[in-house]
């Protein structure tokens, strides 16, 4: 019995220290004077690997999800003769929920896991220790560009996802299923509010970007420097980030669109 209590307490303490270390890593890598000698090159390089490389999966998934939404929405709405409401159905679903969440989940799989594996491998091959030896702070040099690249890329990717998904829905809804283009767009514009829907969706995407990148860099930085350790850290990144995104989505939805 006492053993159980002891183990429980031990686990609780290790969770707390984990959060503490994660917070310190985030704080130290986020702030501080930028490294002028390296210039903006480090950040641009990471934006390229994290943002531009994620573009293909984001665009393809966005188009497909928009098309599926239009198809499913149409089959339900046409039963009530309300197929002209397809535009608002698709756009509200995407802007408020699906866009930020699915883009974040794709971002975890595409970029978050890569960041963890990269930083973890740098640690395992003692590259981070070598940097410290020659007086370069690895948190600044390695972690900070990746963190900022993730925070900047995520809202951009989410908005691109929303745009191509709505265009995909237009192709299926208007061009194939024959919903009137005028009522499709007019209904959409009447119901979608810029502040309420577009900006709140962007805030969601931004918060997901911070959390997902934070988890990714911390898991890489904190990985046990062995091959098993890196694989476990990469798995943890995907699992923790996905759960964090879904849990935060519920909280943010409750705050933003919940009870008036």
């Amino acid at each position: 019995m006492l053993d159980h209590v002891q183990r429980f307490g031990h686990q609780g303490l290790s969770v707390l220290t984990g959060f503490g270390r994660a917070g310190i890593v985030l704080w130290q890598s986020m702030w501080g004077a930028p490294d002028w000698r390296a210039g903006p090159g480090l950040l641009i390089r990471q934006l390229y690997f994290i943002g531009v490389y994620s573009l293909v999966i984001i665009v393809v998934s966005g188009v497909l999800i928009g098309m599926v939404l239009a198809l499913q929405g149409y089959t339900v709405l046409v039963r009530f003769g309300a197929e002209s409401a397809l535009g608002q159905f698709v756009s509200l679903t995407l802007l408020r929920e699906l866009g930020p969440v699915v883009a974040a989940l794709l971002f975890v799989g595409r970029a978050g896991s890569a960041v963890t594996a990269e930083i973890g491998l740098m640690k395992a091959t003692d590259q981070l220790a070598a940097m410290e030896m020659i007086g370069v702070d690895p948190l600044k040099r390695v972690v900070r560009p990746r963190l900022w690249a993730g925070i900047i890329s995520m809202p951009i990717l989410a908005q691109i996802f929303n745009m191509v998904a709505i265009l995909g829905a237009v192709v299926v809804g208007v061009n194939w299923l024959g919903v009137d283009a005028g009522s499709f767009w007019a209904n959409m514009q009447n119901t979608v509010e810029f502040r309420e829907d577009v900006l709140n969706g962007s805030i969601k995407a931004f918060s997901f970007g911070v959390v997902v990148t934070w988890i990714a860099i911390f898991q890489g930085y904190d990985a046990i420097p062995t091959s098993e350790g890196i694989s476990a850290a990469t798995t943890r990144t995907v699992v923790h980030s996905s759960l964090a995104v879904l849990a935060m989505d519920f909280l943010l939805t409750a705050v933003m669109f919940g009870v008036d």
Partner: peptide, 29 residues
């Protein structure tokens, strides 16, 4: 990093701004 990387990152940023503009004007009216 190379110049093409800079150009692609710039295009990525512009695409994001274009998406936001599309959502603001065409979608939310």
């Amino acid at each position: 990093y190379s110049r093409s990387m800079e150009i692609l990152v710039g295009a990525f940023m512009l695409l994001g701004i274009a998406a936001l503009a599309f959502l603001a004007i065409q979608v939310s009216g």
